[in-house]
Amino acid sequence: KNAAQIVDEALNQGITLFVADNRLQYETSRDNIPEELLNEWKYYRQDLIDFLQQLD
C-alpha cells in the first residue's frame, strides 16, 4: 500500500487525514475509527506525513 491509497481509503470512509505541527491528524464525523485503519496510519505515519505535506 502507499500513502495515496491510505488517504483515499480514509476519505471513502468519511475521514480526512492532514498534518498539523508535523503530526498526522484526522477529522471525521464518525463515532469511531476502525482499529485496522488506526494501525495502518501508525505503521505508515511518516509516509503519510510526507505525502500530505507535498500536497500543501
Rank of each mutant, 00 (worst) to 15 (best):
L55F: 11
T16G: 04
D47L: 12
G14P: 01
N12F: 11
K1I: 04
L17G: 02
D8I: 14
Y43N: 11
R30C: 09
V19G: 02
R23N: 14
D56A: 13
D31M: 10
K42T: 14
V7G: 01
A10E: 01
L24T: 01
D47S: 12
Q25M: 15
N12G: 11
D47P: 07
Y26G: 02
Q5R: 12
Y43K: 12
Q5T: 08
I33T: 03
R23C: 15
F18T: 09
L48M: 03
D50Y: 10
I49A: 02
L37V: 06
T16C: 15
E35V: 11
Q53R: 12
V7Q: 03
K42Y: 14
L17D: 02
N12M: 14
N2P: 11
A20H: 13
F51T: 02
Y44W: 07
D47F: 07
Q54C: 10
T16F: 14
R30P: 03
S29I: 10
Q54T: 10
E9Q: 06
A3G: 04
W41Q: 00
L48S: 00
K1R: 07
E40S: 05
E27Q: 12
I6G: 00
S29C: 13
L17K: 00
D8W: 15
E9I: 04
L11D: 04
E35S: 09
F18C: 13
F51A: 02
E9D: 07
Y43I: 12
D56Y: 07
E35F: 08
R45F: 12
I33S: 01
E27W: 14
D50C: 09
R45I: 14
N39T: 09
N32D: 13
L48I: 13
R23G: 11
F18W: 06
Y26P: 01
N32V: 13
L52R: 00
L37K: 03
D56C: 12
Y43M: 14
R30I: 09
D21H: 08
Y44L: 03
Y43E: 14
N39Q: 12
L55Y: 12
I33H: 02
T28W: 04
V19R: 01
V7W: 07
Q46V: 09
I6A: 01
A10M: 04
F51K: 01
Q46E: 11
I6D: 00
N2F: 08
E35N: 08
Q46M: 08
Q25R: 11
D8L: 15
T28M: 03
N2S: 15
Q54Y: 10
I49W: 04
D47I: 14
L55S: 10
L37W: 08
K1D: 02
Q46K: 10
T16S: 07
F51W: 10
N2G: 10
E27P: 02
E40L: 12
A4I: 05
R30W: 06
N39D: 12
D21F: 06
E27Y: 15
Q25Y: 15
S29H: 11
I15T: 02
L38V: 08
V19S: 03
L37Q: 04
L37I: 07
